[in-house]
Amino acid sequence: MAGKIIEIRGVSKQFKNAQAYAVDHVSIDVSRGDFITIMGTSGSGKTTLLKMINRIHELTDGNIFFEGQNIHDLKVEAYRKKIGYVIQQIGLFPHMTVAENIAVVPKSLHWGKDRIAARASELLSLVHLEPAIYKDRYPSQLSGGQQQRVGLARALAADPEIMLMDEPFGAIDAITRQVLQDELLAIHRKTGKTVLFVTHDLHEAFRLGDKVIIMNEGRVQQYDTPYNILFHPANGYVAKLVASEDIIEKLKVLRADSISTPVQVTPDGRVPRVLANAPLSAVLGKFMETGAPQIYVEDAQGRIEGSILWNSLQSIASLRTEGAEYFV
């Protein structure tokens, strides 16, 4: 039980006048500190599931537990203030400055003025927006990427335990999206918050998630690490989904730290290094560039945390995807 921040038990959602279940008897446990991505096509129920966690949609059936308490028994507004919520259209308040936007929940929780101002500056720095410049700007003066950074800062303002993110980068251009994804991963690493991130983009889901929930027609098709989903798909649907990925594509969405063996060594100038969140395709490139038999995986501060052998990478690449026989 300890370490499970969210427990979803047999949860279903049927909308009024609809025959089909938008979410069909889903049971999921989320461990504290995990970055979970929820992936599916439109209508798969991924967003509905997310919105049931913060009670935007009420459950038709089943229970959700937050830190052991049934969310139905909690006062909904107080509960929501413990959750950071980021949506695709961002929804910044146009009549408030950036600082005022960030301050909304803290103000509602009666934080002191100074504490709020300090927190706003801290968060703006975290999302790489210079506080002195941006705190008095209005949303209309910001680009889409900047607005979503503020949206993220606003969601983090009251230091919530968990972040719910609904396709937050969907409306952002591809280049900025990549940057924001990296920054989000860095923030996750730094703050250790639990994140539930909905996306329809397979690559985004695999790149960001420690674990991925694949949804289709309201049901969970597989809930596992990206590696397992790619190489051990649970059923025909998942197999077909990942089958379109050739080996290079697969390597692109796996992180170096997903297959590295932990080691404790002092940096040796001759062994090439990659960052922990570098894609395996970059690791492959490094191997080919240098011809080395081994590569170290380092964290953002330059400390060695793991190592990958060429043989390991090669055996993964040659791994035939199980379930290939599910499709023609």
Binding site: Y79, Y85, I90, G91, F93, P94
Partner: peptide
């Protein structure tokens, strides 16, 4: 008032009066 603004404020846990 844009619906995204209302959705964000609901999701943040603001009460109806707020």
């Amino acid at each position: 008032v844009e619906s995204s603004v209302l959705e964000a404020s609901r999701g943040m846990g603001l009460g109806k009066a707020e």
